[in-house]
Design a protein around this nucleic acid. Structure first.
Lengths: 247, 247
DNA sequence: ACTTATTTGTTCGTATGTATG
DNA sequence: ACATACATACGAACAAATAAG
């Protein structure tokens, strides 16, 4: 609550969509920095009074901003400014650590589990392996500035790196793991994106409320000779990330 | 229930992850066509008996397939094979009708609402317009084979096509609308992807259960000279579509 | 309208094997 | 060697929704 006062005190000129004007003004106040991340907005009634409108109109405006992820309303408490979502570009060279570091945050990766096991049907297909070929499976929780971002399972052919888990633990990054076993210029072949709701287990690991939306990303990475060397199935907290595809 | 019988009757060889073997076998039976889309699988107890395992083990396998969207369980009724998700490629030339038609389905688009209004803050930014410049807003429900796929709002600068709604109604496609006003080779500049839950209103329009996941796609299209001519905010039913990004 | 059987969902308990310290 | 924790798998019972008569 650094400031307060006139932040939202703008006159409403035009004659179209009152709630939109108000939404725009609140958004402007937020991006301008009048309200810090996590800070509580004035109450709906306060805002309504300042604009000289009914509280319903303010609620319509806040609903717009809520849907766009700028604010979050807590019943009985207030409306809070949400942290800006991290832009996560999907490119041929997509590496978590680089992306997070480039955004000025600290990338983290924690190996939750690992195993050596025969490839499930779909994974064998993706990696272009014979059915039941052995793979290394790594389950990794990734974070930015200690905030969980994604929960992913990564598979790679076992013959490429039988001790992948150990290497990962030392390297603390999949790209460094791959570099260590000789793949320095691997690249993304394709990325498939869907969405799901967080169940209790995923929510706990990602420090989310169950039911919050997840972006589900399935990807295949290939070596320079085109051979698939890695595939992953990851769930991103949609509240904290947005994928960006540039053409 | 065209078939039945031996479809799931496979022996379990290896000694690793029983439920995974079963999941793989069921998946195989589905992709092989032993069970048609919408068809009911045998009951959990039936499957358990055939494999000679506990029902919990079958449930673990079905949970895997449920999460991957291959089947859907209905309490008291049964477990059903889900329709395959439509692959929706995100490329420089991304046009809904072409994509759906190329998949062998019939593309549909219904204009739910339209208006001429000053651009909201974020839309003005995307279209590189001065604040409050007039835009045409089109709200469109798109479908494939009569099944709702996405619910989107499209904005374009009003000076480009003051009668965009009328043209759309005749052309029944945004790409044909743009072609009609002289933009034949527009292309996608960027695409931002997030996720959300369907609220009651969106769910009703998309014929979904409220709470189901949506893929939220924000995009900007540019003319050949690089000028933004169209931006859209669309929600895709994640149960019915997956986005594909190829590199 | 009511009953009964079927089917998925949930919660106990038990046993076993495998890591971890 | 031992204790602890964890995941897999089995078993039994019951709740809740659905379908059938």
């Amino acid at each position: 609550m650094a400031h307060s006062g006139e932040a939202l005190n703008t006159v409403s000129p035009a004659g179209v969509m009152l709630w939109r004007k108000i939404a725009d003004d609140i958004e402007h106040a937020i991006v301008r920095g009048d309200f810090a991340t996590g800070e509580k907005l004035p109450s709906e009634q306060d805002i309504a009074d300042r604009f000289g409108v009914n509280r319903h109109t303010v609620r319509r405006a806040l609903a717009e901003l809520t849907e766009r992820g700028l604010v979050r309303a807590e019943r009985g408490s207030g409306t809070y400014v949400e942290p800006a979502r991290i832009s996560y570009p999907i490119r041929a060279r997509t590496r978590f650590s680089e992306i997070i570091n480039a955004s000025g945050r600290m990338a983290g990766g924690r190996l939750l589990a690992s195993s050596k096991e025969p490839a499930p049907r779909d994974i064998a297909l993706r990696l272009d392996l014979p059915p039941n070929a052995m793979t290394i499976r790594l389950e990794i929780l990734r974070s930015a500035n200690r905030v969980p971002i994604s929960l992913g399972t990564t598979w790679l052919p076992a013959d490429l790196a039988p001790d992948a888990a150990k290497i990962y633990r030392a390297a603390r990054s999949v790209s460094r793991l791959l570099a260590h076993i000789g793949f320095r210029d691997y690249k993304r072949r394709d990325t498939r994106v869907s969405a799901a709701m967080a169940d209790a287990i995923h929510a706990a690991k990602l420090q989310l409320t169950p039911g919050r939306p997840l972006i589900v990303v399935d990807s295949v990475d290939i070596a320079s000779d085109g051979r698939p060397i890695l595939t992953s199935h990851a769930r991103f907290a949609a509240d904290r990330v947005e994928l960006v595809i540039e053409n």
